[in-house]
């Protein structure tokens, strides 16, 4: 085992790939800020029962529409209460759970579908590629918001339905990016070598192709997570997503909308948190792309 900390050796060999990566990660402000914000919101979502000062569903008609503490409210309800007297901070905290859960699960579903399609198209080419490209074209032609709204309305709005519908709709970018990435690596020497020693196709796909395109996959996962979270909020805002009394940020904006004239904070606070989460995820995704695959920057 060579000691990589030896300054003389370091001077001769230069930094290792791992050290270079670490340097790029910690030198990338956007990636760091995004990752920290996402981590904090994820911890808040996980520890929601411990952190929320009140039950997010408990109504108290005596304490309706209390203002937040910075607008003259009390510390009993730091961010005030909504039109049913429910503690706004507690609903925001539980809302983080809803948003992150939808983002993660929808991105996983669409990621599995899109990656399978994209890798198959890129690796096999020919007819498989033609079919996948056609399906991507069909999917892109369908208006996402409209189709999601219609399907959720027909099947009935629940968290599960919204997650599954978004997961089944958002695979297009995965397919496009994974197809292009597979095309880039499938003619490399190591793939030819694996084919030459008679490795099976699933083995080549899993051990030769996938590890070399997983960087791009992670970037798309983050961006599609953000996309799913925004879409859920929009569906819930339109009243055809997650149904009340679930604490969803989009639903909170929608419920606050009618009182926007006198109590604009009812709309401003949940929207701002949603904006912050999506911004942080996007910063993280863009940062990951810069750090791992700078050639794909556009």
């Amino acid at each position: 085992m060579t000691d990589m900390t030896d300054p003389l050796l370091q001077e001769i060999t230069g930094p290792t790939p791992g050290q270079l990566l670490r340097k790029r990660v910690f030198g990338h402000q956007g990636l760091l800020i995004g990752a920290i914000v996402v981590a904090i919101l994820a911890i808040i979502a996980l520890l929601a029962p411990l952190l929320a000062p009140h039950d997010p569903y408990a109504q108290s008609l005596m304490d309706r529409m209390q203002p937040p503490v910075f607008l003259g409210g009390t510390w009993e309800h730091p961010l005030g209460t909504d039109h049913l007297g429910r503690d706004y901070l507690s609903r925001l905290i539980y809302g983080a759970r809803v948003s992150l859960m939808i983002g993660v699960i929808a991105a996983v579903i669409s990621g599995v579908i899109g990656t399978a399609m994209g890798v198959a198209a890129g690796y096999f080419g020919g007819k498989v590629d033609a079919v996948v490209t056609f399906l991507i074209n069909v999917r892109l032609a369908m208006p996402v918001v409209l189709v999601a709204l219609a399907v959720v309305a027909i099947l009935g709005g629940s968290l599960t339905v919204v997650i599954v519908v978004l997961g089944l709709l958002l695979w297009d970018r995965f397919a496009v990016v994974m197809r292009a990435s597979t095309l880039q690596v499938r003619r490399r020497e190591y793939v030819a070598a694996a084919q030459a020693i008679g490795a099976s196709t699933p083995r080549i796909l899993l051990t030769e192709i996938m590890p070399n395109i997983v960087n791009n996959l992670i970037v798309v996962v983050t961006l599609e997570m953000a996309h799913a979270i925004l879409l859920e909020a929009a569906l819930s805002f339109l009243g055809l997503g997650v149904q009340p009394p679930t604490p969803s940020w989009g639903l909170m904006v929608s419920e606050g909308k009618n009182m926007m004239l006198f109590e604009p904070w009812l709309v401003l606070i949940p929207g701002a948190v949603l904006f912050l989460l999506v911004l942080a995820i996007n910063l993280m995704g863009d940062g990951l792309r810069d750090v791992t695959a700078p050639e794909n920057r556009n």
Partner: peptide, 11 residues
């Protein structure tokens, strides 16, 4: 890219 359009509209 992060701005929820419904929220932006309400603001």
């Amino acid at each position: 890219q992060a701005m929820p359009s419904f929220w932006f509209g309400l603001i």
